[in-house]
Amino acid sequence: MANKDINQMGLPKWITNIFTARNITTAKEVLSLTEFQLMELLDVGLADVTSAVAHISEVVCPPCQTALLLMEHRVRNENLAGHLPTRLKGLDEALCGGLPFGVLTELVGPAGIGKTQFCLKLSLLASLPENYGGLDGSVIYIDVESKFSSKRLIEIGMKSFPEIFHMKGMAKEMAGRILVLRPSSLSEFTESLHEIKVSLLQHQVKLLIIDSMAALVLGESDYGGPRQHPLGWHVSFIKSLAEFSRIPVIVTNQVRSQIRDAVCKYSFQAQSCAETKDDTARYDSHLVAALGINWAHAVTIRLVLEATSGQRYIKVAKSPMSPPLAFPFCITSLGISLLNDDGVELTGLEISTITCQGQNDVLNIDGERLWG
């Protein structure tokens, strides 16, 4: 609109001719100058300049919309603003229907907390027929750490959806809808991204899962500043995949320790409860999301899975449609199950902390403590 021609503005012909004579032909060129500059350039009075600028501004300015109009527009275009229900009632209600289409949703937490279990359940939900509440599509599951288990997938399906999986051939059909890729390096993953974009259309893909993004870059460079650079392109490309295909994209992320004395650049910081083997001292460190602040800005929904005093929680730590809430959960043969649907609203540091109690240390090749 800013490049709209002055001749199309509906201004009085006399002032339009003056603009044209002074080689001012677009709204942008008019609005880039002050009223006094225009007075001097056009040789007209302040009242005429003010009137012309006000008229041009009104023409090129986007119309105001009420919240009600935006909501009605969203309802009319629900196919572009849909959700993948997680079947965790409290979480779905907090997220206004589930994991939204067209954006990145991140699962971050320590090893063994349940991130992959959650991803397996989501894979089944996306591949379920629509009349059973699914998306009736295929799933691309990028299994970086070889944690994907077909046996566990079928077990979750049999226990969660017995009316479907007990039908002859249905378990085989559902498992056949999930395409598992196992890139061995970041470069191999990079090469496959363009093929994935084509597959999203050719195979009616309704869900993309990357488990885990942090593992792709682990060992390629030290954590911190240098590691952000190779991820810049990947962040942009994955976001474009979500927006282009209008499907939910789920990415898991690890956590790492950070020396408390270091400058705290990242969110989701908490005092680590990890102890030394002789139980004589605690590490004076934080737990932080492994991919850092640049990655944190790229995700729209961030769900933190953590353990406190022997109880697991899933926290809505970042969401444009929900307050920060925490739900206790457990892992059963059904997958992840909430212990209750009434989330506890979080305040202060509770929102951004990651706690890890009872988890074993995992060391990377440089000896840095890392929880996957």
Rank of each mutant, 00 (worst) to 15 (best):
L201M: 14
W233L: 11
A175Y: 08
L208R: 03
I156D: 04
S245T: 05
V198L: 14
L153C: 08
E188G: 09
I209G: 01
E195H: 15
P183I: 08
K206I: 07
L201P: 03
L153Y: 00
A171Y: 04
A175M: 13
L231Y: 01
A171P: 02
F165Q: 02
Q204P: 00
G157T: 02
S185R: 07
P183R: 11
E195S: 14
V180C: 06
I164C: 11
A214F: 05
A171L: 06
S212M: 06
K197Y: 10
H194G: 08
Q204T: 10
K172D: 15
R177H: 08
Q202Y: 14
E195A: 15
K239S: 12
L179P: 00
E220S: 11
K172H: 14
I210L: 06
L179A: 08
F244K: 07
R182K: 15
H194Y: 14
W233R: 15
M213V: 11
S192E: 13
S236K: 10
L186M: 11
I238Y: 03
P230N: 08
L208F: 07
L218R: 15
L231H: 00
S199W: 12
I209S: 02
K206W: 04
R177A: 05
A215F: 04
E243D: 09
F161N: 03
S185K: 05
S160V: 04
I164M: 11
V205P: 01
L216S: 01
H166K: 14
L179E: 07
H229D: 12
M170V: 10
H194C: 08
S160D: 07
I164F: 09
D222W: 14
F244Q: 04
G224L: 08
W233G: 10
G157A: 04
H234P: 00
I178D: 03
L218P: 04
L207C: 02
R182Y: 07
G225S: 14
E220N: 10
I178W: 07
L179N: 11
L153P: 00
V198E: 15
R182L: 04
E155G: 05
L231R: 00
V180R: 03
V198T: 15
L207Q: 02
D222L: 13
Q228G: 07
Y223H: 09
